[in-house]
Design a protein around this nucleic acid. Sequence first.
DNA 1: ATGAAAGCGCTAACAG
DNA 2: CTGTTAGCGCTTTCAT
Lengths: 344, 344
Amino acid sequence: MSIPEKEITIYDIARELNISGATVSRALMDHPSVNIHTKQKVQDAAKRMGYRSNQLASNLRKKKSNIIGIIVGNLNSSFMSNVIFGVEKVLSDAGYNLIISQSLDSVSKEIAIAQAMYNNRVDGLLVSLAYSTENADHFESFVKRGIPLVYFDRAWPHPECPSVEIDNVRAAYEITSHLIKQGCKRIAHVTAFKLSSVAADRFKGYRQALEEHSIPFDESLVIPTQLTLEAGVEAAHTLLNMTERPDGVFVTNDACAVSCMQELKRHGVRIPGDIAFAGFNNDTESSIIEPNLTTVNYKGYEMGTTAAQILLDRLNNANDKKGRKNRLIQPSEIIIRASSLHQG
Amino acid sequence: MSIPEKEITIYDIARELNISGATVSRALMDHPSVNIHTKQKVQDAAKRMGYRSNQLASNLRKKKSNIIGIIVGNLNSSFMSNVIFGVEKVLSDAGYNLIISQSLDSVSKEIAIAQAMYNNRVDGLLVSLAYSTENADHFESFVKRGIPLVYFDRAWPHPECPSVEIDNVRAAYEITSHLIKQGCKRIAHVTAFKLSSVAADRFKGYRQALEEHSIPFDESLVIPTQLTLEAGVEAAHTLLNMTERPDGVFVTNDACAVSCMQELKRHGVRIPGDIAFAGFNNDTESSIIEPNLTTVNYKGYEMGTTAAQILLDRLNNANDKKGRKNRLIQPSEIIIRASSLHQG
DNA sequence: ATGAAAGCGCTAACAG
DNA sequence: CTGTTAGCGCTTTCAT
């Protein structure tokens, strides 16, 4: 197959073979009503002449872009990279292209991205909201136009938009209860400044566990942060400076938990001897830091493939509303490791 | 802004305001030659009527998709997630959309993706080749059509295609030399089955270092693998089963190195006491495993932003061939950690 | 089984 | 400054 100077169109092929453009188009898309010989001739000519179909034209005509948009807060976490890995796999097998944008956890950017994706006429949308997003009006245009939208991880409840999440309340409840059972009496909680639904749910689970075990909730043990690596170091100092130091810490994400632990270790704090630790996400770091970090495991890859699969279902059975689950709770489990195990 | 039932086009606006579609189009794209009042009226009407520009049509007409494609082997590594993070940031600031595909290190998939991206008329392409790719013919169509293509990390030398890489030969040479200076006499090398340019270069650096220090090259110390986590475990067993065990190992990537170390530790091998270790990439794992892994550091984020920037330059100054560097070597540094330090 | 013709929604000469 | 006109390349009725 040689590569021609000029773009070859179906009409070039049509002229070459003395047939109509319509027939070429049909032959190329393997339409059943085209004579098998014609089909063959067209396909041969296309190859020989170096024809490359122009999706731009096809998209316009069909009012379908074959593109799925995905909007995430941040791309650089191992959880998200696994989500994308799974999403891309499922969608590309189904013949869709994936366009990716990150809101960098800014609402205004999220809005701009949503608009751009709408203008690009994406066929469907996968969204994990920015931490600071406090409503989902900017996605209403998709809903109104019947463009399927599936949330994952950080969702906004909406009757038309399914979501794939985990039960954050329960997971947080369980991991906090575990700390209590290990003997912790004063458990600090490192969480987000703005309580997005995810952080809010985990906070809720933390409080529930305290309550259930008759441990009074102490506001001063709640440490709001950006949940970054730097924030972990800061949180460590907050902990070090407390007059009455906690004997357990539940951090709402692993990255932050790990950097917090490292800083505490640098200051001679023994983990879990002095302070027991628990995180969230089971990021790679958690099983490598010493002591290994107790955490909540839920798989990005599975969440990605599931969300993508749900989206495909909606795309294929746009009208079939039967048997639809609106909210999918992905399994999660707490993984108990040395960071939280009672000594001796 | 209300959301209408039917798609609003520029002609709906034109009719509403009794002007021509062309003027509406110009007003919307803020063309200088449109009366400021008309412009205002059009923009107001557009907002009021819930107009959303149809990129599909615009793309076809302008023969420009505003889309940049990126092809990578695998999305789920921290290095790659940082590359994407950087690329997305630069390109989205420049008004481009990013479409992402992973070849899963399969050449045939890479070819299919390249074709699909061509058909989608991407404006530019960012590529990190599959491990097994042994020529880049499938990218020739882009070159011939003047569609800028920039390689990063795993490149194919081509006069028209710039690349952003690191000096793999030198980095491997340095890290192997370091092992030698720490007293290692028998250094194994865990590498890829198919020697892609990257793995080949690192292999070359390894051999150069041996030669320079008068250590005879021993074929039996070269362990070809898939470079996965599982492969690391297998490599560990290969090492354990050697009659004359090496006292140092240079693994061509961190993930594999870490899983190999963990398996060896499980079998009682002391690191670096019995075997010193060095990896490549400075992935998160390397600074968390005990002992911390000596490795080569190069930043995915920087590589991503640099590659994207070069692509933008080509896009904006398509013809200006002056001062172009064809091959950009990104800085890399070896990071010496406990895994390779001579004891006592 | 094939062709003629219309048009997806937008942009860009060109003319005025 | 604005309008007219002609497509971009493809798909899809509707005929034949």
